[in-house]
């Protein structure tokens, strides 16, 4: 889980071109959207593609985004659950 979360942080910083944010600056439970890291709905769509590219996970309904993408930990949990389910 720790390893997965570290990888996710690096991927998020890279994919979203988060200038002046280092992967280690992102807390495991820090909210990613709004007042947390300040991401928005466009970033949510970027993360959906990121999960597809790196983890082979498809999210067909963007409405699921806010729940799954709450924090790095919730994304990691979703990935783990989804990959074991396969």
């Amino acid at each position: 889980m720790e390893k997965l979360m570290a990888a996710l942080k690096a991927q998020i910083v890279e994919q979203l071109n988060l200038q002046e944010v280092k992967p280690e600056d992102i807390g495991d439970d820090q909210p990613l959207f709004k007042d947390g890291l300040g991401l928005d709905s466009i970033d949510a769509l970027e993360i959906i593609v990121l999960l597809q590219q790196h983890y082979g996970i498809r999210i067909a309904n963007p409405e699921q985004g806010p729940e799954i993408f709450h924090s790095v930990r919730t994304i990691a949990e979703f990935i783990t659950a989804h990959q074991t389910a396969k």
């Binding site: 994919q15 466009i42 769509l45 970027e46 593609v49 597809q52």
Partner: peptide
């Protein structure tokens, strides 16, 4: 396939 929205927007 696997395209992201930012550049399009």
């Amino acid at each position: 396939e696997m395209l992201t929205p930012t550049a399009f927007i």
